[in-house]
Nucleic acid binder design. Structure first.
Lengths: 106, 106
DNA sequence: TGATAATATCGGATATTCCCGATATACGAG
DNA sequence: CTCGTATATCGGGAATATCCGATATTATCA
């Protein structure tokens, strides 16, 4: 018997995706070397640092930092701290899972 | 060349999915005959009427009506008016499209 | 036509989200 | 340790969402 558990996490993911800027950030992170050519202090394997994302978003540092936290809590991105920088990159597995959830659970 | 158009509709879809009750309604509509055994005035091909959904949701009629409008504007459900009833059912094509959008666009 | 039932829309109190400036924390250089 | 830089967190004003009760609209039936 299949018991439907209304996944709390699902709601969190959709809320995270319910903001224009956060959707844009996820887009930019698909192609870091194109979207963030200015980043020089690290390769793109670790991700993109908050400052670069902030400049591109045109919002304040605090807002962008919070948005990245929201995306991270939803599992859509992961962060790596290297020195004074925090690099964020997409968690592609989460998007694959979300895609499947929409096909079968939603 | 592929030009990314930040789809206004995408945002609307995610906002529509950012509510516990609306997610539940979509779940219920997956299996109308199980979720709404009380509906007798119509077959389930046309969908489920607002009153049945309202009873199950436990919210007021106005709220449920509005939620169904939100889901409809997002393209996730479609409605059919038959006499005094409006029947809502899932638009499965929208979910398939959303699943693909997440795989390729988001 | 008038009464009743189903649904939609309106106006508003409350909760949540958005986004900011100020401040705190973490780190590296000197 | 102290200064400067990067990021995180806090407090709050404005905008939006949630959900309600009241009312309007649409359809049925006598």
């Amino acid at each position: 018997m299949y018991i439907c558990v209304m996944n709390i996490k699902q709601l969190e993911v959709f809320k995270a995706l319910s903001n224009k800027t956060r959707l844009e950030i996820l887009q930019w992170l698909k192609d870091p070397e194109v979207s963030f050519p200015a980043q020089v202090h690290a390769g793109f394997e670790v991700g993109v640092c908050v400052g670069e994302i902030q400049k591109k978003a045109g919002l304040t540092q605090s807002t962008v930092s919070e948005y990245l936290s929201i995306l991270q809590r939803a599992g859509l991105v992961e962060s790596t701290r290297v020195g004074q920088w925090t690099y964020y990159k997409r968690n592609e597995a989460a998007f694959e899972e979300l895609s499947k959830i929409i096909q079968s659970d939603i």
